[in-house]
Design a protein around this nucleic acid. Structure first.
Lengths: 165, 165
DNA sequence: AACAGAAATTTCCGAAACGGAAATTTATGT
DNA sequence: ACATAAATTTCCGTTTCGGAAATTTCTGTT
């Protein structure tokens, strides 16, 4: 069972699992109509084993009391990006971290409880990591899409724009 | 069954489900040792219903042929942020989108197949949305953490830094 | 400290889902 | 057209799940 490129069945399964990762194979099969329950189960196993998808719990930062979210842009001294990334990776306040081209070197996503905690984390945690030159937090005012999924904020905004209730 | 703040059991369950969202309740219970299988199942149901967590499939962009990832910063004319967000939300190339404070107004994450597609999307799709003033893509060179989970890139970097094999 | 009421946990059970292996069908290359 | 490999399907014992009732634990009040 070695699978390289996805077909429509795979893509349908993925899109269903994206919305609910705990769907049973038979539920998926019956929604699709054409594929048997066992085939769907085989496909899911293959998708997971080949790491095409990962099924996991995504904690809602707001529900968990992390009310303040921010994108953080970091400028790092040349040659020290990985070093800084390793240090930052330790913190579970950081949900996302990547090295980027452009005017900053690292782009991250930060989840903290309060604005005070945000300031503290940027000043005293990130700011003190050797190699960090500049830290620029951009507070997130409204989340429209995350993990490839539209948020309720985006859905209500769209409905409003279309004149729906 | 109404649950407001998480206890250690919840947090342990969440952290296990973060790694593998398809773990069965009994597997989780046996890993923990103290909680019964039914209690774990109750907690998971409560966590899902209260939207503390969402369990879903997270597609690996690279595995799916979306080899180019970029953060996109967008400057929007005053008063048109939501309008632009609604337009952008339609594209499934956009995995993340948020309104931010700072020198840009929208911060997004983009997954496309090639650099040509990136340029095209920024120039001809985002750039032509009414209200958009400036588009600045930052190409992601290496991903260290996503969805709150460390990537293999970060793990190998950490191992190397610690002198491990 | 004792008690009442509510919430959480546990027990129990039938239905559904899962994993492994063999059989069948479909796809691929010569 | 044929041989081989890959994918799908069938079959079946075991595990997991969902619902309801019973029990325990927690909470606030007197």
């Amino acid at each position: 069972m070695q699978r390289y490129d996805l077909d429509d069945l795979d893509r349908t399964i993925i899109s269903l699992l994206t919305e609910d990762g705990r769907l049973s194979a038979s539920e998926i099969a019956s929604k699709i109509g054409t594929a048997s329950e066992r085939t769907v189960r085989n496909r899911i196993t293959a998708l997971l084993q080949s790491r095409m998808i990962t099924i996991g719990a995504i904690p809602d930062p707001t529900a968990m009391g992390r009310d303040v979210q921010a994108d953080v842009m970091i400028e790092v001294e040349p040659g020290r990006i990985e070093e800084v990334a390793i240090a930052l990776g330790e913190f579970d306040e950081i949900g996302y971290l990547a090295a980027t081209s452009g005017r900053f070197n690292l782009s991250g996503s930060l989840f903290v409880e309060t604005h005070a905690a945000l300031l503290d984390f940027c000043e005293n945690t990130i700011g003190r990591i050797p190699g960090v030159r500049r830290v620029e937090p951009w507070v997130i005012l409204r989340m429209y899409k995350a993990f490839g999924t539209r948020t309720t904020a985006l859905n209500t905004a769209t409905d409003r724009a279309e004149g729906k209730p």
